[in-house]
């Protein structure tokens, strides 16, 4: 995903002049971003974008506002997240992998994963989660299974899933089985791909 792709995808928003003006504004007046960020969904919309799949209009517009800043991306992303409503927080999380910030915003992932808002947990497990340490990443994946978030939202799931995650999933499956409750099909399939957890792998151990 690149800002150019998002920009192209947003050509059809109801009020493209607003978005153009907002992007020009943040490039020269970064202090304007909190209000523009809050307004973006009302001005651009909230529906799903046909392409790229998995993105909504407001997430894409807010991501462009963040990528359009001249500097201080990490500090601004953090402030917008801390002061944002749930949709703004989600947009910040989606934007993180597109910002020149290294691992600076990992604390935002920790915050999102602690919540019980499944939309935030899902958004925290995109490409930026490559900076998330392995124990936290495993628990976040397990939380997805526990709360019914489809594992398709997890970036690089098979590349990163390891024996320890398999053991955790197997334990959850045993609990669910004892309780007469089902595991989500995508979790069972992952467990099958990983084996039963009795042969820990060393893939990217933290």
């Amino acid at each position: 995903m690149t800002p150019d792709q998002l920009r192209a995808a947003l050509r059809g928003v109801p009020d493209p002049q607003w978005l153009d003006a907002a992007l020009r504004r943040v490039a020269t007046d970064p202090a304007a971003i909190p209000r523009l960020f809050a307004l973006a969904a009302r001005r651009c919309g909230r529906g799903p974008l046909p392409d790229p799949p998995g993105w909504t209009v407001d997430e894409a517009a807010r991501t462009l506002l963040l990528t359009g800043l001249p500097a201080d991306h990490a500090a601004t992303a953090e402030a917008l997240y801390r002061h944002g409503d749930a949709a703004e927080k989600r947009a910040v999380l989606r934007a993180l992998p597109l910002l020149p910030i290294g691992a600076e915003c990992v604390p935002l992932l920790h915050d999102a994963i602690r919540t019980n808002d499944t939309r935030l947990v899902a958004a925290a497990l995109g490409p930026y989660a490559r900076h998330l340490e392995q124990p936290a990443w495993r628990h976040a994946v397990l939380k997805c299974v526990f709360t019914g978030v489809p594992l398709a939202v997890v970036d690089d799931l098979d590349g990163r899933a390891d024996g320890e995650l398999a053991a955790m999933l197997a334990a959850l499956a045993a609990e669910r089985h004892a309780a007469g409750r089902a595991m989500p099909a995508d979790a069972t399939a992952l467990l099958d791909r990983l084996g039963d957890g009795s042969h820990p792998t060393t893939a990217r151990e933290a």
Binding site: R42, R46, T118, R119, A122, F146, T147, G148, V149, P150
Partner: peptide
Amino acid sequence: SGRLDLTDLEGAAATFAGNSILRG
């Protein structure tokens, strides 16, 4: 206010509706 959002009210409001509270 211009901010009342009552679209798609019949459908699920959240992407993964019905889970985190019910199971969490």
